Computed example of a mutant assay.
Amino acid sequence: MQTRFVLLQTSHAGNVGAAARALKVMGFDDLVLVAPRWPDVLTREETVQRASGATDVLAKARIVATLDEALDGITYLCATAMTPRDFGPPTFTPRAHFPAIADAGHRVAFLFGSERFGMSNEDVYRCHAALTIPTDPGYGSLNLAAAIQVIAYEWRMALGGFAAARAGQAQPRADAQAVSGMLAHWERALVDIGFLDPASPKKLMPRLNQMFNRAQLTPEEIHILRGVAKAMSEAGAKLKR
């Protein structure tokens, strides 16, 4: 099953190397960095040292400019946002939530925020679920690499460990880029028919994002929804004539 670990605006090179090591010991190697502090972070001395031999993961890792690029092909997003948001996806512990994702046959991405600022609300709103790691209430601070290690371990166990492989028969899911493009199309259409005021959008689009995430759309359903958006825009244009 495709599994990707995405690090957003990482500021410490050593954490990238430690993340690569954490992934390798759990049998994962799809690491993507979004706008890291250091453009050469994958080859910096501190990174390589902290990887402790996981140089193949570093060699395969990619650096991209935007989160959209990092999510190509992904159908289910998990935010590792330890601080609850006032609005957003439901929050689960990894052990409670992972079996259901594994059984659904998704292409999964785990998103980790920057060491200094964590994840932005906008990025969390895009996700299907927020993950919280149970820690001592008096001290819940986890190093980035430690958090990645816990998530990677729990996900590997949900996949059956190293002794089992799952063969899912689930329908293919639309990837995150397709959902994002469809939402942008809907936003334009809702403005065209006068339903959405771009000067005061409130939380309409994040709420629609969450609704469509729960629906677990297929590529065919994305195509249908884009057709609906196109029809709405055409109807709006006729009304304005």
Results as ranks from 00 to 15, higher is better:
Pro84Ala: 11
Asp40Met: 04
Glu46His: 12
Leu31Lys: 01
Arg62Ser: 13
Arg50Gly: 06
Ile74Leu: 07
Asp68Ala: 15
Lys24Arg: 15
Leu71Val: 14
Thr93Trp: 07
His106Pro: 03
Asp29Cys: 02
Leu58Glu: 10
Asp56His: 15
Gly105His: 10
Asp68Ile: 11
Phe110Ser: 04
Asn15Phe: 05
Ala102Glu: 09
Tyr76His: 13
Arg95Pro: 04
Ala109Leu: 08
Leu111Cys: 07
Thr47Lys: 14
Asp72Phe: 14
Arg62Gln: 15
Ser11Trp: 00
Pro89Tyr: 06
Leu67Asp: 07
Val64His: 11
Asp68Phe: 05
Pro89His: 01
Val34Pro: 00
Gly53Met: 08
Lys60Pro: 05
Asp86Met: 07
Arg116Trp: 00
Ala100Leu: 12
Asp30Ile: 02
Ser52Glu: 11
Met26Val: 02
Val48His: 10
Val41Cys: 04
Asp29Phe: 00
Pro94Val: 00
Lys24Ser: 09
Ala51His: 09
Leu33Asp: 00
Phe98Asn: 05
Ala13Val: 01
Val108Ile: 06
Arg21Met: 04
Thr83Ile: 08
Val16Lys: 04
Thr91His: 02
Phe112Asp: 00
Phe98Trp: 03
Ala35Phe: 01
Ala79Pro: 03
Phe117Arg: 05
Ala13Gln: 01
Ser114Leu: 02
Thr66Tyr: 12
Asp103Trp: 07
Val64Trp: 12
Met26Phe: 04
Pro36Trp: 02
Gly17Pro: 10
Pro36Glu: 01
Gly14Lys: 12
Ile74Cys: 08
Thr66Glu: 13
Tyr76Pro: 00
Met82Leu: 13
Ala70Phe: 10
Ala102Asp: 10
Phe87Trp: 06
Val34Asn: 01
Ala51Ile: 07
Glu115Asp: 03
Arg95Gly: 05
Arg44His: 12
Gly53Phe: 13
Thr43Glu: 14
Pro36Arg: 05
Met26Arg: 01
Phe92Tyr: 14
Gly27Val: 10
Ala79Arg: 07
Ala51Phe: 12
Val48Gln: 13
Thr80Lys: 04
Pro94Cys: 02
Gln49Ser: 13
Val16Tyr: 03
Ala35Thr: 00
Ala96Pro: 11
Ala79Gly: 05
Phe87Gln: 09
Asp30Lys: 04
Ala102Asn: 08
Ala35Gly: 04
Ala79Ile: 03
Ala65Trp: 10
Met82Asn: 02
Asp68Tyr: 09
Tyr76Phe: 13
Arg116Cys: 03
His106Ile: 06
Leu71Pro: 04
Asp103Asn: 15
Phe110Val: 08
Ala65Thr: 14
Phe98Met: 07
Ile74Phe: 08
Thr47Glu: 14
Leu42His: 11
Asp72Tyr: 12
Asp68Lys: 15
